[in-house]
């Protein structure tokens, strides 16, 4: 059973169709890649899935329950978490408090067991390798690390589905390497991850299944090596560059 199912979702902004009958499934225990040129509609899709945007058509199902009309908070409580391409960190808090407050919010859900926020924060800091900058203001850290803070913050809610919007942009090669390993470990623990990323080496390495989005439509779905040789995909990318 897929953890997340997007069924025939469409979005319009005024005259432009940002998404058109998009279908995607994300399975637990694996990384599902989502690639496409800038403006293809990837971020828009994440906004629909997390409830920040209501689609003009289609359904979103989370753990086999229809959440198309649910609030963002309700979806989060059902195990959905995300990061933002345009960083949405809590800029007046330190790195540690950015992560800690996610635990605070989780404990405020009022159902399920409460977590020990202080202990969990330290575990997540350790896991994501942010220990050395935990005390710094998030406003003062490099973009690449800020993206990892967003991931760490999302992990604090102990999600079952995680959406990552270009998490490696701004990271150094070394950081990307470590980040890829982290993704692998998280997936191995059973998390369902959907990864939007422009760093093809990373996407190809960690993804089980890859979706290609272009002009708001799914162009191709398949394993990484299939996608690389898909003529439509190559044409889209070359066409985009021309």
């Amino acid at each position: 059973m897929p953890a997340l199912e997007v069924h025939e979702v469409s979005v319009r902004f005024g005259g432009t169709r940002a998404l058109q009958d998009v279908n995607i499934t994300v399975e637990p225990g694996s990384v599902t890649g989502l690639i496409g040129p800038n403006g293809a509609g990837k971020t828009t899709l994440f906004n629909v899935v997390t409830g920040l945007l209501s689609p003009s058509g289609g359904r979103v199902r989370l753990h086999d329950r229809d959440v198309t009309g649910a609030t963002p908070a309700r979806r989060a409580r059902m195990g959905l978490a995300r990061t933002f391409q345009r960083l949405e960190l809590f800029t007046s808090l330190s790195v540690r408090d950015n992560i800690r407050v996610a635990g605070d919010i989780r404990n405020g859900w009022g159902r399920g067991h409460r977590i020990n926020v202080a202990k969990e924060t330290e575990r997540v800091l350790e896991l994501t390798g942010l220990g050395d900058i935990a005390g710094r203001d998030v406003a003062d850290i490099p973009t690449g690390r800020a993206r990892v803070v967003e991931v760490a913050r999302a992990l604090m809610t102990q999600p079952t589905v995680l959406l990552l919007d270009e998490p490696a942009a701004g990271q150094t090669e070394q950081e990307t390497e470590t980040f890829g390993q982290l993704l692998g470990r998280l997936a191995a623990d059973g998390l369902a991850i959907c990864l939007v990323e422009h760093d093809m080496a990373l996407v190809m390495r960690v993804s089980g299944i890859l979706h290609v989005l272009d002009y708001g439509q799914i162009l191709a779905v398949g394993r990484p090596e299939q996608i690389q040789n898909d003529p439509a995909v190559i044409a889209a990318y070359l066409g985009g560059a021309a």
């Binding site: 908070a73 995300r82 960190l89 808090l93």
Partner: peptide, 16 residues
């Protein structure tokens, strides 16, 4: 503070 800095991020973490 989190809500003040980014309502969107707060909501997607499950804050009502």
């Amino acid at each position: 503070t989190a809500m003040k800095d980014s309502p969107a991020a707060s909501a997607t973490l499950g804050q009502s």
